[in-house]
Design a protein around this nucleic acid. Structure first.
Lengths: 170, 170
DNA sequence: TATTGACAGTTCTAAAATAGAACTTATGGT
DNA sequence: ACCATAAGTTCTATTTTAGAACTGTCAATA
């Protein structure tokens, strides 16, 4: 499967994965949320090759996650900053960090602590239901096909269905 | 940078990315949360090559995200099911889906709707502070070094610092 | 004036990962 | 014996990534 194909999938996860579903994009975004903005700063702090960094920044700009803002003329230089769309990735970044905090820390403990300025306390992110405010878990969620679903299948056809349909169609 | 190096980083995001930071792992996990459990079902529903699927399942099992459970003897067959550690990935998956719902849907609308069984309503996931319950945004969060942080740097050294230190150390 | 350094890339080759298809192993059914 | 199911493994070709060097602008310095 090609990356372009992912964007076309009738699945919000697949489409998002097309934007951020590779290791360097996620690491670049981490740096963005830590106020890194410039090419050489990304490069040095990540150890990414300049080639790939250029490529990924271009991709993130193309998807509207980052914007190139000139910060000096002569020679023209740009900073990469998060757009509103990019800032909306915060829950993804935070939930990834949180999972790592719970399941991947070594004996030394967390590399990072997060303080909520609004209440002044160190916190963990919690994902809750927008309607009732209760914490969410997979088993209390039921999935329905939405208006953009593929044909009659719940999400997309299950394995066996698709194999059969493929065979029927050609 | 090699994948193994990511696991060693003093950063919970990098360590999590070592586990789920590639497109196929995320898509496989989507299927897991949709109750797909068997090799051929993953393969057919994702269109992933069998080679890569075997590789990714092995990796997810190694990291303790999936467990192989025998469902028949002779010939021995296994299902891949989410462990508790794997189920904890739900907020990551949901926040990815939600971002796609907001920013990547086409004119037809969302491919999927989510119902919260506890309250009976269609919902969106919201990330809140564990201490005060307010919705989180990047600008209300301040980052502090934790016990597992690298030396004296806030998260890890900034670009320029690291270049300099590298030069000093040889 | 020539040199150095900062910055943001681009270009190159070698190594690694992925795609796509065929093959293997074990077993049960016809 | 022959076919189907299931879960992989093996193979070659293509694509992606790593790593290093190179390019082009401009400012400051010797």
């Amino acid at each position: 499967m090609k990356w372009d194909a992912l964007e076309e999938e009738p699945c919000s996860l697949a489409r998002t994965v097309a934007v951020i579903g590779d290791r360097w994009s996620l690491l670049i975004l981490r740096e963005c949320f830590l106020r890194i903005r410039r090419f050489d700063d990304f490069q040095a702090s990540l150890g990414i090759t300049r080639h790939l960094l250029a490529d990924r920044l271009k991709k993130l700009v193309r998807f509207g996650v980052l914007r190139k803002i000139p910060y000096q003329e002569a020679p023209k230089r740009y900073e990469y900053i998060l757009t509103a769309k990019g800032l909306d990735l915060y829950p993804i970044i935070m939930s990834i960090v949180h999972w790592g905090n719970i399941h991947m820390v070594d004996a030394r403990g967390r590399p990072l602590l997060h303080e909520h300025k609004s209440c002044g306390k160190m916190f963990d992110p919690v994902m809750v239901c927008s309607e009732c405010g209760e914490p969410l878990s997979a088993k209390h969620v039921h999935v329905h096909p939405g208006p953009g679903a593929r044909r009659s299948s719940p999400l997309h056809a299950s394995a066996r269905e698709r194999t059969k349909r493929g065979a029927e169609q050609g």
